[in-house]
Design a protein around this nucleic acid. Sequence first.
DNA 1: CCTACCGATCGGTAGG
DNA 2: CCTACCGATCGGTAGG
Lengths: 200, 200
Amino acid sequence: MPRRSREDTAETRRQIVETAVGVASVDGLEGLTIGRLADDVGMSKSGLLNHFGNKEALQLAALRAAQQRFRVEVWHRAADEAPGLPRLRAVAEAWVSYLERRVFPGGCFFAAATMEMDDQPGPVRDELAESMSRWLDTLATDAREAQRVGDLPPEPTAEQLAFELQGLIFATNWALQLLHDDGAPARARAAIDRLIPPAV
Amino acid sequence: MPRRSREDTAETRRQIVETAVGVASVDGLEGLTIGRLADDVGMSKSGLLNHFGNKEALQLAALRAAQQRFRVEVWHRAADEAPGLPRLRAVAEAWVSYLERRVFPGGCFFAAATMEMDDQPGPVRDELAESMSRWLDTLATDAREAQRVGDLPPEPTAEQLAFELQGLIFATNWALQLLHDDGAPARARAAIDRLIPPAV
DNA sequence: CCTACCGATCGGTAGG
DNA sequence: CCTACCGATCGGTAGG
């Protein structure tokens, strides 16, 4: 029954990757070791490695799964809003809420992965940089549309707004994870309301 | 000559710690391995470990040295300004400049260490959390003084301003380290000028 | 400060 | 998917 077998293989791989995302968000992409992950999912190192080839491929698989989860938990919650200020505000709220809901057990996967890998050249770093650049563009595009229709003033620029939103998310994640300060999301929302105020 | 010997020991230790700070800012506090550091400074593992006892003590020594460097490169550049808005603005400028000057080879030591260690209980995490809390307090204290004398409006609150400044620094460090975006410090300064504008 | 060594774990391979 | 194994490296210790 080759068909059944292929499905099982895909399901096993899915379970490995899901576990890997959780481990990586807590212990980092380097803390994600093959032996430990094999124990966690209950199989041998070589059996696990068979699905990916090497550790770097496993890290990339975890990163892509984390991106997919982010899309579902942040972008999809806002995607139906009208492009421009409504969608930008919905994205910002979903983004803060994603931290508050602790979508990843170790806090924002991308904040942690970025700080860990920013000095480690290679495909993982490249994929991280590209994906975060695209995200900043997504934010700036809605900010620009909001400015075009007059929902936001022309200054600060769209790129500036995206940059500042990114900073608020970092600060919130940091306050939640390091200081266990549950007041951080409220501060983020207050800052967002000044930065990109609702249309009147 | 016991005295000369004691000085040499202190000098050796100083060199080890200085090297450790650089390594940790690039590869993280866990990437700081005893064998590699011993190679870097040209001595044996056991000789190096003799100065600290174990790896955790070495990490704490590196963290404290990094704090000292931060004090010199950021706080001391602003400490002579008048408490309140003048000093807060000077601190913010020195803080952005500290990223721009690449005081640590791997970017902000504390941003990297925080994201790496925030889920790893122990003395290193505790020291990081305490030291960053104190820093936020330092910022908020000057913000409060600025509000008291009317140099800043009562809203946003002093704590909110400190939180947002911290976020701008994270975003700047991130844009410099991951995206190699040299425009980030200018964006940070623009945001700072809106957040805590110079007194008229 | 050194050499010599410990058990554990790392990423990965051979062979089935 | 497994067992069995590889060389390298981990943090750390014994003994000098």
